[in-house]
């Protein structure tokens, strides 16, 4: 889990707070901290020293990864930390289990249904019974607009790698579902 305890020194806590204002470029309603992709911050508080921010990608090919690294460096430079190193850290692999409860609520308000279920609980075995004549996706997904569970998956992939496309039969609105990953 996050390398972030209450015992951390103040400068590091400050950096975390600044990072909590860096929006995800694809889903600006949530910050990079909300998403759980910032894994570690290490900095002495001395501006002449380098500040390290470890970030993990959501998906291997997520094109937002490079933008995120650049935005983090720029934000911290604006806050007076001239030397920022953003390091990509692959393991442990990012999971939607790291989305904070606040992030889930922000997603819902933004019109994106938050992930359902625990990714960690899923073993990496493809269950055939879930594939048989159904989409193989968890159901029901609650419509973020009207709260109905009478929804249907329209497309296994949506506007970004981390989302699927759904439609609500109650309010007739389409919506994105943040896939459990």
């Amino acid at each position: 889990m996050l390398v972030r305890s209450d015992a951390v020194t103040t400068p590091v806590r400050q950096v975390w707070d600044w990072l909590a204002e860096v929006p995800d470029p694809e889903i600006p309603a949530v910050s990079v901290v909300d998403l759980g992709i910032v894994r570690e911050v290490s900095w002495s508080g001395d501006p002449s020293q380098e500040c390290l921010v470890a970030v993990t990608p959501t998906y291997s090919g997520c094109p937002a990864t490079e933008v995120i690294a650049r935005t983090i460096a720029e934000t911290l430079k604006e806050r007076g930390i001239p030397q920022v190193r953003v390091e990509t850290r692959l393991a442990p692999a990012w999971t939607t289990d790291w989305l904070t409860p606040e992030a889930r609520e922000k997603l819902r308000r933004y019109g994106i249904a938050p992930p359902v279920g625990q990714a960690a609980a899923a073993e990496h075995v493809v269950d055939l019974s879930r594939i048989r004549r159904q989409g193989g996706l968890p159901t029901p997904i609650v419509c973020p607009h009207c709260g109905s569970t009478h929804t249907e998956c329209v497309s296994a992939f949506g506007s970004t790698p981390c989302k699927a496309l759904y439609r609500c039969h109650a309010c007739k609105e389409p919506f994105d579902y943040f896939k459990c990953h």
Binding site: P57, S60, P92, I131
Partner: peptide, 28 residues
């Protein structure tokens, strides 16, 4: 090799989804 294991652990989550989708389409 930790690096290989790390890449595989990342990739398998994506590939599980690919497999589910392609299996589903083969049946359909």
């Amino acid at each position: 090799d930790e690096r290989i294991a790390g890449i595989a652990a990342k990739a398998i989550k994506e590939v599980e989804y690919h497999l589910r989708r392609s299996s589903d389409l083969v049946v359909r």
